Amino acid sequence: MILNFSFKPIADRWTAISKFSLDKTYRAVSSATVDVLWQKLENLADVSWHPLFSSTNAPRGLIAKPGLIYQVVTRLTPIPIRIFVERVKPRELLSFRAIAIPGIENRVSYQVESTLCGTYISYSVTLRGWLSPLLWLWIRPYVARVASELANAATERISDWSLGTRDW
């Protein structure tokens, strides 16, 4: 008796799972100028507006530059995640890659665009890897709020300037 067994169906399923990809973009409108929004984004030490991050090891006033690697602690776990700054186009685009867990590739980009209606903030998330569906289920409610929280933080900063309550 000869047994013939093929691993092809198992390999095909594994390939389909490992090639999982999710691209999601969120947009928000702010009355703040591009400069104010960009200052909020570019200051890596201030993550008070971010719904997913609680703290960072970046020194105060550190500005995002390509190739920079720093750590962020999330509100969900006390485990630090390394963040790699990929691309920076001043006042337009800021792109990061999270280096956290093998099996997950997470890229995040912020785009700021000035229009007649206000300043648009686009927040794009790309998840790849076989653990990405689980991560997405866990972080989806927080990710959906990032663009709007940034817009609110920039608008608060403008109102604080106009009231003279803070020294900048």
Rank of each mutant, 00 (worst) to 15 (best):
P141R: 07
E113H: 15
P59N: 04
P59G: 04
G67P: 00
R60E: 12
S6C: 07
K40Q: 15
I99M: 12
T33C: 05
E42I: 05
W14I: 13
A98K: 01
S21V: 12
P141C: 09
Y26R: 12
Y110E: 08
A154H: 07
A98H: 00
D167C: 00
G61Q: 06
K89I: 11
P9L: 05
H50Q: 02
S95C: 12
I158N: 04
S6W: 01
I121K: 01
S48E: 02
L131A: 11
V73C: 02
G61T: 04
R13F: 08
D46C: 04
E86K: 10
V146N: 02
F53L: 06
P78A: 13
G67K: 00
T74I: 01
R107C: 12
S148H: 14
W161E: 12
L41A: 07
W38H: 08
A28K: 07
G103W: 11
P9C: 05
E113P: 13
L44M: 04
F5Q: 14
V88N: 03
T56N: 06
I79M: 07
F84L: 15
R145C: 06
W130S: 07
A28G: 09
P9T: 04
E92Q: 14
Q111G: 14
R97L: 08
V146H: 05
T25S: 15
F96Y: 05
P78H: 03
I2M: 10
K8S: 15
K89Q: 07
D167A: 13
S55L: 06
I139L: 03
L3N: 14
N57T: 06
S95F: 09
I83K: 00
G129D: 02
Y142H: 04
S162P: 05
T155K: 09
A144K: 14
F20V: 08
I99G: 11
S95L: 11
T155E: 15
T119L: 02
S21W: 09
S162V: 13
R75G: 09
L76R: 05
R107L: 13
V29W: 08
S31F: 03
D12K: 11
L134Q: 06
A58N: 11
T33I: 05
A58E: 01
A28D: 14
K19L: 11
N106H: 14
K24P: 05
L37A: 10
I101H: 13
F5S: 15
A32D: 01
Y120V: 15
L37R: 07
R82L: 06
F5G: 15
